[in-house]
Design a protein around this nucleic acid. Structure first.
Ligand SMILES: [Mn+2]
Ligand SMILES: [Mn+2]
Ligand SMILES: [Zn+2]
Ligand SMILES: [Zn+2]
Lengths: 149, 149
DNA sequence: ATCTAAATGTAATGATGTTGCATTTATGTT
DNA sequence: AACATAAATGCAACATCATTACATTTAGAT
């Protein structure tokens, strides 16, 4: 099973003409295993044996290739999430809602919630929209219910 | 006129039980004079005679009091804009669209464009929404038209 | 005028992100 | 299997943004 998954990531790297290195495979494996975005600080502490600079370079190249996208959370911290849309080299289409839980700080990509088109004031030419929400995620809202009882 | 305006800012500080200091009045004067948000780097370079730490403290207290709100732009840089909604101590209501021009980098608060209410997946309890758009602002879209001709 | 909490200044430190350059490694070719 | 080389990594230094602790000054009240 683990092999199958790893093979999938190796294919992904191949597709983008990126060398299959341990660091890259580990980053992919971590990000694909979660249903939330991963913050840069988290990545850095988990992958503490990989050089900081290397990590930044991996994140940057993955973003350029359309493998992941960057989201800033409520505190301005960079978070990274895998792209499920048909993103590619310099062409991102991740215009879904990003939900930032105020309790656990996790950022969720709610891919099904797209932006409603809006008519902007005269002169503004929008190229992309992003939608943010903050509040309690399912886990944390359930937890706070329990505490309230 | 300048006196009238300054008096207005002094009243504002009074209302929030903040001492009327030169630094605070200058920050208010700068932010109220523009129709776009002001980035932290800009503030720092313009107010280069005020200590960096003081500037951060001014921004933080203004945000706490509901006088200004913080917006991160596309690069994760902190920008500050005056609150036009009825924001107060620990109660912000700035759920309008923030437009980030990719050319001039300015952030515009489009107060009239509020969030459409969305139904989130089960369990998510949203407390606040924010809407971002990026593209060309009126000035820059006009400029690019001229160049194209 | 005096007093004091609030505001500012200063120095040190932390967190995040980038750049330049030396070294190593993945991978295609022989 | 050995080689060649571009790509990837590691390391050191630096840049920027932000916070903390503590000393000093000042606005505003008495
Ligand atoms: Mn996303
Ligand atoms: Mn705003
Ligand atoms: Zn949560
Ligand atoms: Zn512009």
């Amino acid at each position: 099973m683990a092999q199958t998954k790893n093979f999938r990531f190796e294919e992904l790297l191949d597709k983008h003409h990126l060398k299959k290195t341990g660091a890259r495979l580990r980053v992919l494996s971590m990000m694909y295993s979660k249903n939330t975005a991963t913050s840069q600080p988290d990545l850095e502490s988990v992958m503490n044996d990989i050089d900081r600079v290397t990590l930044y370079r991996i994140l940057n190249v993955f973003e350029e290739k359309g493998i992941i996208h960057k989201v800033f959370d409520l505190n301005g911290t960079a978070n990274y999430a895998v792209c499920h849309a048909d993103c590619g080299e310099n062409h991102h289409h991740d215009e879904h809602l990003h939900f930032n839980c105020t309790n656990c700080k996790n950022v969720y990509c709610l891919d099904d919630l797209h932006m409603p088109r809006l008519n902007l004031p005269d002169g503004f030419k929008a190229e992309s929209f992003t939608l943010y929400a903050s509040g309690l995620c399912p886990k944390c809202s359930k937890k706070s219910q329990v505490i309230a009882n």
